[in-house]
Amino acid sequence: MSAKPTANAAFAPRKPRLTLKDVAAALDVSRTTVSNAFNRPEQLSEALRADILAKARELGYFGPDPAARALRSREIRQVAVVFHHDLSFALADPLSIEFLRGVAQELDARGMTMQLIPKMGRTVSLAYAFQTTADALVVYAEVDADLAPEVKAFSKPIVLVDTGVTGVPSVRMDDRAGAAAAMDHALKGAPDRVLVLSFTLDERQRKHRLDLKSPRSGSVTMERSHGYVGAAHKAGFDLDRIDWLEMDDNKPADEIDRITDYLKQLPARTKLAVLGMADTMALVGVEALRGNRRLDVTSIVGFDDIPAAGAAGLTTMRQDGALKGRLAVRQVLDGERSDPLPFELVVRNT
């Protein structure tokens, strides 16, 4: 009976990587000769080069370490993307997939690769991200004001996506204007109340959510909140008739019970409009209202226009996630500035 491997067997130290010096010593030639065999073949005869490559393979040496060579040349040909959630979200969320697809399309065309740095816990760890060996950094995550000095001090090319720091290039849509357009559409149905399914906020943000004179910020959540509020105020809609329900955008489907509890508290025949800061949230609202006969639902409006929105007939604000990814790469590598990305109200069944 064979012995079971120890718990640490999987973490046994790897054998040291062979170097040019090791191969040269084993073949009794100079390091320069071995280097030429891999990097400058025109410097050697075909026979000598073939002999060196064959013997190097026998030793288990297959060429210089590309990472070390890239570090020496200071060109990795890689762009790092700091992502605003963990990896499982990045590979499942429809809008995030579209954004990463756009980044990949632009990098593929340049023969470059992508490094994905997920969010660490509840906050973006820029100190960790700034250690990347990549040539440039795309920050697809909300950057709070207290992180602005770190962002400005970063020594490599950097671009922010869906957030903003004064003096740092960014790619984003006008979230405030997009949210205002969504509210304008919702108010056409003359609702008694409006329910906003919102991204989560901290206490400071909640305090200023209804501030009609708020300056532009780097927060998507605050910009969309101010867009909703500003449009409602302009239309003469009482802001006290706007209800806010914050949802975990990582798992919006888990919030359906909270929406159902809210709906039960409304008087029968209340005319209700629902605005979701993301389609994934609005679609949970659609599900919570399925089969409803107590309330008069005047409209449900999402944000993003993911594929599921079209399939469900959801009215939404469309933005092009793939275009956003492509523009982010062009800006960080070429310095190509972009205007705020376009948005479009797509009216469907809701």
Rank of each mutant, 00 (worst) to 15 (best):
L18Q: 08
H185A: 01
P215R: 14
V29S: 03
Q78N: 04
D93T: 07
S96L: 03
A145R: 11
A253L: 12
S88T: 15
V138A: 03
D184Q: 07
I300Y: 12
V79A: 13
L116I: 11
D86V: 14
G178E: 03
L95V: 07
F130K: 05
Y140F: 13
R294I: 06
A90M: 15
L263E: 05
A278W: 09
Y262T: 06
G178K: 10
L212A: 09
P66S: 00
V220G: 01
D86N: 14
D334R: 13
F199L: 03
V23P: 14
A56Y: 08
G218E: 09
A67R: 09
I76C: 04
G102Q: 08
P307G: 06
Y140C: 14
D175I: 06
L201S: 00
S217H: 06
L295R: 06
L201G: 02
P16I: 11
S30D: 11
S30H: 00
L91G: 09
F89W: 14
A181N: 09
A3K: 15
D257V: 15
R122P: 09
K21A: 13
L87H: 06
L137P: 08
H226R: 12
L245S: 06
L283S: 03
D305E: 11
A232W: 00
A50R: 08
A90P: 12
L160N: 02
A12L: 13
D257T: 05
F154N: 02
A311P: 04
A328W: 12
I52H: 00
K251M: 14
A308L: 00
S88E: 15
T32Q: 15
I76K: 12
R206M: 07
S170D: 11
P149Q: 09
G285P: 00
T19R: 05
A67P: 03
A109D: 07
L275M: 14
E106G: 02
V194M: 00
V161T: 00
D22T: 05
G111Y: 13
A136G: 05
A47K: 12
M281R: 04
E98K: 12
D304T: 13
R326E: 04
I76N: 10
A7V: 13
Q78W: 02
G60M: 11
G178T: 04
K152W: 03
A282L: 06
